[in-house]
Nucleic acid binder design. Structure first.
Lengths: 335, 335
DNA sequence: CTGAAAGCGCTAACAT
DNA sequence: ATGTTAGCGCTTTCAG
């Protein structure tokens, strides 16, 4: 059987309480007693029981992380930032994935509440009445990572989706492009809407009429980038640049273009979004929007912990800085 | 304040125990009572306290996962398999990363024991006396994922590192290669040794003398693949193929070759290891060894749960099947 | 500075 | 089928 505090108490002759205090570095314990008890605890192979402690003091030092798909390179890096920062603050992370399933998202929130996590970091769907109610009535601190939820203000950490895509599309227009293929992201996701709206705004600003055949909706998977561009080429849709909801789509697009004998960037230019780590190693390397993924995870933990420590603190949306990165998949005319 | 079982007991007139039973679907409760209690619980917004339950029944339904780096695409996929399978069995996952730091590995094992996880899945370092002792004395079930630990038998799920690299290098030799650059993996990691040994064995089988300048040691990062090949080219080292510890190194190598005007596979062929999801989208697409990453995570959970359920079960190493995948980065002469 | 007692919320064992 | 009692291992009062 494992060594317990009462065993140490018995072995040292102190009360169980004094043992508890000594092991926790509580002030009002003489240095000699503390060292004596700690030495004995080590010798006996004592391992603190966090569960029992949590139960008593009603905090678990665990945060629940509800991601979309932790093997997606975007979220993998965000989650890494979360884990790293949480660790620095003495917290651990329970991690689950929703695959964009609203029901699963809801179940996990409840599960984590039942597991008494101290706070929740969620990559949420955009619109879901039931989930909205859940969040509104949620009794523990929570932040949304990289996304907004319709009907809930202040809980999101964002990354200038609208502004960045507006900048990208405006840049491409300034470079002479008029027929721009846009590979859009999954529905029911605030980023998709925000990025698409940025693109549409750029067209509007330039007085370019929208050709609906130039917008292709996808779920953001790399294969869809490949298939969508294949399809567009087969249908004879003309375009001089492809700008994408994310880098994965852009990578799929690159493959299709290559297989169809289109040279990038000479014949067609390609712009991504996210700046995945691997994007710089594509051939050609991918022009994209750098989203601070690791920093997003770090900031999310910081923000969450602020609310865990001060439950009365008001929530405010944060919008992290992005920047455009021009690489080999675009002709960069020095604008 | 949150609703507790005693509140439901009071509200329904049943004892707290009956409430507990009804909510857990315990047999010996009449259907009417159960439904009545459940309805009341829902109405009162009751959320089960898993911590308190765990404490009582001494199991947490949580497994601890100690990865190397969950944002590395290899481990990201393994971890995804773990999460998915754990969920199917009603378990959650606490996830941390070691960055190959033996001290951190040790600290996390202790941390997870103190958090009373039911079992441990670890991506461990190979040789470390202190960690060896720790695992030998560990009182909870544990499995090593994709790696061996020197001095501990039976706890590993592996993937034919030696056999696969032997096959790859033999294939390349059969294709006429004599000067093969090998980008080796990090030290203190069983995979690195196993894969390198496979390569060396192939050379030996073919009676090819080892040229030490053709073995370059790395930590397996993509940038090192790039830098190592740059260096080899600058030094005028001759080789007709690069075979790599992992796909990331191979990707870095592809970039260097491209920048140095070497055509792949015409001038130099490249072979990876792992078959990362992204590898098929490289230009050219990467020939590699398919390691069943997701399945590795799944099997690891299955194996761990078997030992959680039957503590007396003997441990046995498992060696998952791999297969060679020939893509555009090698000339495939139909052997 | 140390000890005694109470209790966190739940479940298991036993009794009815 | 339901209730009573005890206790998981720890921390937090409150006393001294």
């Amino acid at each position: 059987m494992n060594t317990l505090m009462k065993d140490i108490a018995q072995a040292t002759g102190f009360s169980i309480n004094t043992v508890s205090r000594a092991l926790r570095d509580d002030r009002k314990i003489s240095k000699r007693t503390r060292e004596l008890i700690r030495a004995k605890a080590d010798a006996m192979g004592y391992i603190h029981n966090a569960i029992a402690a949590n139960m008593r003091c009603l905090q678990s030092k665990v945060i629940g992380v509800i991601s979309k798909d932790s093997s997606n390179p975007f979220f993998a890096e965000v989650v890494r930032g979360i884990e790293e920062r949480a660790r620095e603050h003495g917290y651990n992370m329970l991690l689950v994935n929703t695959e964009e399933d609203a029901q699963r998202e809801r179940d996990y929130v409840r599960l984590f509440v039942s597991r008494h996590v101290d706070g929740l970091l969620v990559v949420p769907g955009y619109q879901c009445q039931e989930n909205l109610q859940l969040y509104k009535s949620l009794s523990i601190p929570f932040c949304f990572v990289g996304r907004r939820v319709q009907g809930i203000e202040g809980h999101s950490l964002l990354h200038q989706d609208y502004e960045s895509q507006l900048e990208v599309s405006s840049y491409l227009i300034a470079n002479g492009h008029r027929r721009m293929l846009y590979l859009a992201g999954p529905e029911n996701l605030s980023n998709s809407a925000d990025r698409l709206n940025g693109h549409l705004k750029a067209l509007e600003n330039a007085g370019i009429a929208l050709d609906p055949s130039l917008i292709i909706h996808t779920r953001g998977h790399i294969e869809e980038g490949y298939a969508s561009v294949n399809l567009a080429l087969n249908r004879g849709i003309r375009f001089s640049v492809i700008t994408c909801f994310n880098d994965l789509l852009a990578m799929g697009a690159l493959k299709s273009l290559s297989e169809n004998g289109c040279q990038v960037p000479k014949d067609v230019e390609v712009f991504g979004f996210d700046n995945l780590y691997i994007s710089q190693f594509m051939q050609p390397s991918l022009s994209t929007v750098d989203v601070p993924k690791f920093a997003l995870g770090v900031s999310a933990v910081d923000e969450l912990l602020r609310h865990i420590e001060r439950r009365d603190l008001e929530y405010k949306d944060l919008n992290l800085e992005t920047r455009l990165i021009y690489r080999g998949s675009t002709l960069n005319r020095g604008l």
